Amino acid sequence: MPWQHGATPPTSPIDKETIAMSVSFLNIGRLGTLLCLCLPFTVSAEAGDDTYADHLYLGAKAGWSHYHNGCESGASDCDKDDLGWGAQLGYQFSPNWAAELEYLDFGQAEATYPFTYPHGTYTGSQRGWALSARASLPVTEQVELFGKLGALYWQGKVEGPTPTRKDEGWAPVAEVGLGYRFSQRWQLNLATQYGDGVGSDELGGSNLWLTTIGVQYRFGADRTRAVQPTPTPPPGPVVLPALHRELHFGFDSSELTDLSPLSDIIERLLRYPDAQVFIQGFADSTGRSQYNLSLSHRRAQAVADYLQSQGVEPDRIRIEDFGERLPVIDNATAEHRAQNRRVHLYIPGMEVDQ
């Protein structure tokens, strides 16, 4: 309904009111359907955000205002466009949902009626308070789509040759837009807002459009969008290298004199229950071969007995005796023969879990 420049009442107020309400609910129903279609996506995005904190935000916006059907047919001059602006206070209570209170000034529409009485120029303006629910859908880490749906408590005024007329009431309001967060707390918004059937029989009315660019500042919004950390794969197995150690013995002796080479052997055997040790006994070439074979066995057994005394199970120990076979060096000198009087311990390499 355009702004009424006269005070003539409508011919059929019930029909006009019924039609206006039907159109209003139809338009807002379409916008409501669009927001509902976004609901599953916002809930899905919200579910993965564990770093979110509730916060307040403030915003301001300004842009182009348009009064659709803002003039009657008899107007010789009609200006339905003006500068509009708004200011917001909101509370973000979940990653994708907020409640918002907004003050809106839609500017004014102006029309001149030279042929109808009382003729002259009339100016109509609208401003008011909107309370809305705001839903957002992340597109990237910094970009979001958002929509708002709520109620506008409007306060309108018509000024002209006749006495100024004022009225107030309620109308549905909706908004869709695109937000770009250029820092942790600041966001730039581009949006279009629609107020349906704003006005009354006293003032006339219009469908209001407000296309704006604005900024928002978010208090305590130190969080990132719902970005899930990449799960750390479980640690893989580790390959332990083979372990070799040697003990040396006095002439014709199986007595253990230096136990320090056994520390690494014992540590691995106690730490890894699947590890096995091979104990190989040797002798030099002095004396009979059969005696040297027996001596090499006694040397290997002495080492095995010590390992068992330290907690190593007998079934994990393998004894081999070689006598004077497989010398590490010839037996030509006393020093060489001392090197061949030995026990060699060997734990094979193995794969273990970390």
Rank of each mutant, 00 (worst) to 15 (best):
Q290H: 08
L270T: 03
F322L: 13
T33Y: 15
A111I: 03
S22M: 11
I19P: 00
R268Y: 13
R342Y: 04
V43G: 03
G128R: 04
P9V: 00
A133C: 04
R337V: 02
V343C: 05
F115L: 10
L35G: 12
H336Y: 12
Q280T: 13
Q142D: 07
E141S: 07
G323A: 05
G220S: 10
S136R: 09
A226Y: 09
L269P: 01
T42N: 09
N69K: 13
D321K: 11
G199Q: 06
T224C: 10
T140W: 14
L203F: 09
Q290L: 12
E335C: 03
V158A: 06
E144P: 01
L188I: 03
W97P: 00
T211W: 07
G70N: 01
R318T: 07
D201I: 00
I317H: 11
D305H: 08
G311A: 08
C38N: 00
A332N: 09
V227S: 14
G197L: 06
F219A: 06
A302K: 06
D167R: 03
S253Y: 05
V343Q: 02
L210E: 06
R299Q: 05
L345S: 06
S76G: 14
R165Y: 11
Q301S: 07
S200N: 02
D82M: 07
P118C: 00
A171S: 14
R134H: 08
E202P: 04
L83D: 09
L243G: 07
N340V: 00
S206K: 06
R337K: 15
R223Q: 12
S263W: 11
R316V: 07
